[in-house]
Simulated assay, not measured.
Amino acid sequence: MKIITVEEHFDTPANIKQFNAYSEVKNNNPHQDMLNATLTDFAKHIDYMDQYGIDMQVISDAGNSPQVLPDNLVVEACRAQNESLAEAVAKYPDRLAGLAVVPINLPDEAAKELERAVTKLNLKGGIISGTVDGQFLDDPKFEPIFAMAEKLDVPLYLHPGVIKDEQKAILYDSKAYSPALATFMGGAAWGWHMEQGVQMVRLIISGLLEKYPNLKLISGHWGEFVPMFLERLSEFLPFSGLDLPHSFEYYYKKNVYVTPSGMYSDPQLQMVLTEMGADHLMYSEDFPYIERKENVQGFMTKADLSEKDREQFAHGTAEKLFKL
């Protein structure tokens, strides 16, 4: 079966060095040196794909994203990262496609870099990691980025990012368990997914998708909790004065595409499939942070899907959305 995974990651030695020098949140992954060796070596991506039956990866920088760098460095850092990605895609054009990282805190520059990355470097969209130093993307200042994505007809992948220390202290630090567990609770286990779900909800209720009706957004980890609450949000938000011509779930089902990010759980698949339909589902592994190996093919093959939906989930939606 043809497999395209769409939330797969890379990095460069130069960006890792800058990220470590400037990021307020240090990378505490105990396997980071091993991960860096894979992130920075595109041949290792190809070897892994060959071994486990993956036809194509759509790759991006989301773990050590240059978007956290100071404003005086971030534009050039994003340009360099995107050029490195474009070189790899050009070397393996039938196996790799890419999403651009952009200097989010400088929205006009971010829009320019997205345009350059798509029109000059042949990248297929953009990726944004979490909030921008605590700023949610519904702030009107970020609109130029979304306007450019709609103009170019390319999607934006809204990936989680590290939450602010203040959020972690209030929501996850506890006298009942260790600081290490609090860090995981505030991060990959729960916190950054919850924040990214809030991000998506805020964007929709801000009216962004009414203003930019052809904008396409992607959400990993089965939608970062949001698909479970589509009906609830649609029912209750109007009571608070939400004045949009359509319901919350209308915008979500029309404009948002969902991937599993390696969370290969059949109950979650069935719930999101029921809400979204296979034409809004894409496959992803989150390589190399997660390596499901044989289960990349195994989960897709065994999932309770019609053959039409299986092909759509495995590669069809990605081919259409990214114009592969």
Rank of each mutant, 00 (worst) to 15 (best):
Q67V: 08
A90E: 05
E294C: 05
K124V: 09
S265T: 04
P13E: 13
V296Y: 03
M185Q: 10
T38S: 13
D279E: 14
G187Q: 01
K253A: 08
Y283W: 14
D243Q: 12
I145P: 05
N27I: 15
R116K: 05
L217T: 02
V154S: 04
K124F: 07
D279C: 13
N29M: 04
A62D: 07
L217G: 04
M56K: 15
D173I: 02
S306T: 14
Q199G: 10
P103H: 13
F239N: 11
E115T: 15
D139C: 00
G53H: 10
K216R: 15
L99A: 03
P213R: 09
L152N: 07
Y251F: 12
L233P: 07
D33P: 13
R95P: 02
P288W: 09
H193F: 02
L203F: 01
E294Y: 01
L152R: 02
P288L: 12
V74C: 09
M271G: 09
D173C: 02
I204M: 00
Y212E: 10
E24H: 08
A14K: 05
S23A: 14
Q196W: 00
I145S: 06
Y172P: 04
I127Y: 00
Y264K: 12
T131D: 03
F299S: 08
P30S: 10
M282K: 10
Q268Y: 15
L242E: 00
M185R: 14
N36S: 15
D165R: 14
N214A: 09
P155T: 01
K323N: 11
I46M: 11
L181V: 03
L230V: 13
K91D: 04
E76V: 10
K112I: 10
I128D: 03
M56F: 11
P93K: 04
V272W: 13
L208F: 00
I145W: 00
K254E: 12
L269H: 10
L217E: 00
Y212D: 11
A111D: 04
P260V: 03
I218T: 00
I4R: 05
Y289C: 11
K91L: 08
S219E: 02
Y251D: 15
D11V: 08
F239G: 14
W222G: 07
P103Q: 08
K253N: 08
V272H: 02
H193W: 09
K151M: 01
G98S: 00
D286Y: 06
M1A: 15
D133E: 12
K44N: 11
N20C: 14
H246A: 07
V201D: 00
E291S: 15
G191E: 10
F42R: 04
E166C: 04
G134K: 00
T38K: 13
I4F: 13
E83V: 10
A180K: 13
G63R: 09
K308A: 15
P103D: 10
E210G: 05
N105R: 15
A147I: 07
Q297G: 09
P66C: 07
K320P: 01
